[in-house]
């Protein structure tokens, strides 16, 4: 599977696991070698705890919640994954693992809508109810490519940020596709009666960025990286506030 430039290999004897992986991430499945390999076995697991927990002991990274447990040697990049054979469980594992990798590569995952215009990616971070899915649906209906209506993946490469195709979607429930686009700008999403783009202060931009960040690694080292990456994004990308009326796709003319 190739996601955000990471080549993830999964081997399993469980037909259920393979079936879920192929069905859920079909468009991201690719042939060739893998950077990280997981030997996957099926387990029933429990409903709780629901929130993934990340810990590192020496070179061993462990990510677990009630229905999965992954252990990977970060030196050899080989590991095991015991998981329930359902989409929610494998999604939760992949989100946690990719978030871990992205933060260490200078990027992160953001709760946001993402779309492509003139070959560039525009990201709209917003809290629940801000209009991420509405904006994405309106953009798609107007012919724009939507990267995701829920979680977008940003990576820092060769001095600038790029957005990568995301398999993690919200209401639109699309599959996403592999691909990457240079970041055109970030619009902090808020509800309003009339569409409007305006300037935003650095501190405010940072706060919303951090609130929308997906991170399960609670170690001080991860927090330091997150602050560093967020600061870098603030310096490299154009941030503006976008008051969104949710009325139609005219907003595409404002970005």
């Amino acid at each position: 599977m190739h996601i955000a430039g990471y080549k993830l290999g999964f081997e399993s004897r469980s037909k259920n696991i393979l079936s879920v992986l192929k069905g859920r991430y079909g468009r991201f499945i690719a042939k060739g070698g893998a950077d990280c390999r997981f030997d996957v076995s099926e387990t029933k697991g429990r409903q709780t705890p629901f929130k993934p927990a990340v810990s590192i002991d020496g070179t061993c990274l462990e990510i677990k919640r009630g229905d999965f447990k992954a252990s990977i040697d970060v030196r050899t990049k080989a590991g095991t994954l015991k998981a329930a054979a359902n989409e929610q469980c494998l999604d939760a594992f992949l989100r946690s693992f990719l978030s871990f990798l992205l933060i260490r590569s200078g990027g992160f995952m953001l709760h946001s809508a993402g779309l492509v215009k003139n070959g560039k990616a525009y990201i709209f971070p917003g809290k629940s109810g801000a209009g991420k899915s509405t904006l994405s649906k309106l953009a798609a209906s107007a012919g724009a490519e939507v990267i995701s209506d829920e979680i977008n993946l940003l990576k820092f490469e060769k001095g600038s940020f790029r957005a990568y195709g995301s398999p993690f979607w919200g209401e639109m429930r699309a599959d996403g596709r592999p691909g990457s686009w240079p970041l055109g700008g970030i619009y902090l999403l808020g509800k309003a009666k009339v569409n409007k783009v305006s300037a935003v202060a650095g501190g405010e931009a940072l706060k919303l960025q951090l609130r929308c960040l997906v991170n399960f690694d609670k170690t001080p080292g991860a927090a330091e990286r997150v602050l560093k990456n967020a600061s870098s994004l603030l310096a490299k990308a154009k941030f503006e506030r976008f008051d969104f009326s949710k009325a139609n796709a005219d907003f595409l003319n404002l970005i």
């Binding site: 202060a201 501190g203 602050l227």
Partner: peptide, 12 residues
């Protein structure tokens, strides 16, 4: 970290 003129403290 000091960002945009303010110090942000994260208690992860």
């Amino acid at each position: 970290r000091r960002i945009a003129g303010e110090v942000f403290v994260v208690d992860a």
